[in-house]
Simulated assay, not measured.
Amino acid sequence: MMNITAPAMPVTMHTDVLGMIGNTPVVDVSNLSPNPNVRILAKMEMQNPFGSVKDRIAKSMIEAAEADGRLQPGQTIIEPSSGNTGIALAAIAQLRGYPIKIMMPTSVSIERRQMLEIFGAEIILTPGEEGSNGAVSRATALAAEHPEWYFPYQYANDANPRAHFEGTGPEIVRDVPDITHFVAGLGTSGTLMGTGTFLKQYNPNIQVIAVEPPLGERVEGLRNIGEGYIPPVFENWNGYDLLDRKRVVRPRESIEWTRRLVSECGIFAGISAGAALAGAAKVASEIESGTIVFIVCDGGWKYLSTGAYTDDLDVAEANAEKIIYF
């Protein structure tokens, strides 16, 4: 008989796949820091079971709606999404027996549409030239016509930032107690608002920084709050007071830093991770010392068809104005 020794660290047993959401690892990518006195750490949200940070809010929104009776067995769910929230909602809806309709622009990558189909969602396509905002407005109108459906509306749903206040923030403090700066992209703003609020309560000196595109420059999925639609979540969680600063990141920088994550750290991440990393690098170059945590929102496999990782950089940059990467 062979001598078999049990692993030193036990493997966690979950009752279902939803137990795998959260508790994502942190990876040191300080080799990319422009300042040797500043550590840069990646919070690997791509490790969630359905592939992105949005797994957290999808679970939170559905469970909150079930708890207060807004979502009943067999009720149809409708939500606008550029992909990640829709994928997570569809996966959980399939597990819980809810029909689901996802409204998304034609400008998303084919992989995201395929994932929605795999999880049984009905996809309602909206004009790509209208971008994410167009999908939101059309879904809002359709939901008003069908009050019998449940409309999570991630942009205004308190369960969105609450998921990060109760999960992402505490995990970062647990794993990186010496954090000095937190950097994330500004989309629905839930990640920044929930995580940032928790971090500020832990230590008011922690800086919370949003990454946004230049004013007037289109980077689909990444929001500049200086123009257009401001998510209610941002205002409800006192975003203007919470944010310490914003850093502008252009499409080319996002793609360049995403490629560096792959080539120099072995992290095959989505383009939003490159944007957040570019912002983190800007912050690192401006401070004397510190520890920066940024969010790796999702993995790169959902964007392979776009050529963002393999095309000539000029071509990839041009595509960023018509493909929703975030």
Rank of each mutant, 00 (worst) to 15 (best):
D312L: 00
A121S: 11
G307Q: 07
I292R: 05
D311Q: 15
I110P: 10
I118Q: 04
M2V: 14
L95Y: 13
L192V: 13
T140N: 08
Y325K: 02
M193W: 03
R96C: 08
N133H: 07
E129R: 10
L89P: 06
L18F: 09
R247T: 12
A6R: 10
R56M: 00
S52K: 01
A281V: 02
L243V: 08
T180L: 13
V53W: 03
G216Q: 11
E171V: 05
T12N: 14
A278R: 05
V283R: 01
S107L: 09
V315F: 01
D312N: 15
A276K: 05
D178A: 13
N157Q: 11
R259N: 00
N37C: 10
H181R: 08
I209C: 11
A65M: 10
Y229A: 01
E166M: 14
G290E: 15
L18P: 00
E130T: 01
R56C: 01
R70I: 00
Q154K: 07
V219F: 14
E217K: 14
I179Q: 09
I292T: 14
N160G: 09
Q207T: 00
P161L: 08
G86Q: 11
I21L: 04
I225E: 00
P7Y: 05
G300W: 00
L89G: 09
T76Q: 11
N160L: 11
E220C: 04
I92A: 06
M20H: 13
L215A: 13
A90F: 06
E286D: 15
T258R: 02
Y303N: 02
A275V: 00
Q94C: 14
V293G: 07
Q154F: 01
T188M: 08
N48P: 11
R96Q: 14
L95M: 15
M103T: 04
D314S: 05
E148R: 12
P105L: 02
I87R: 06
P10K: 07
T76F: 07
Q75A: 10
P232I: 03
Y98V: 03
G279D: 05
F234S: 08
E145K: 12
M61K: 08
T12H: 09
C297M: 07
I102H: 07
Y229E: 11
S60G: 10
V219K: 02
N84F: 00
L186I: 06
G187T: 06
S137E: 14
I123A: 11
I123F: 12
G239I: 05
T291A: 04
D241V: 02
D158I: 03
A316S: 10
I209E: 08
Y202F: 14
D158E: 12
A90Q: 08
H14M: 11
N319E: 05
S30W: 12
K54P: 09
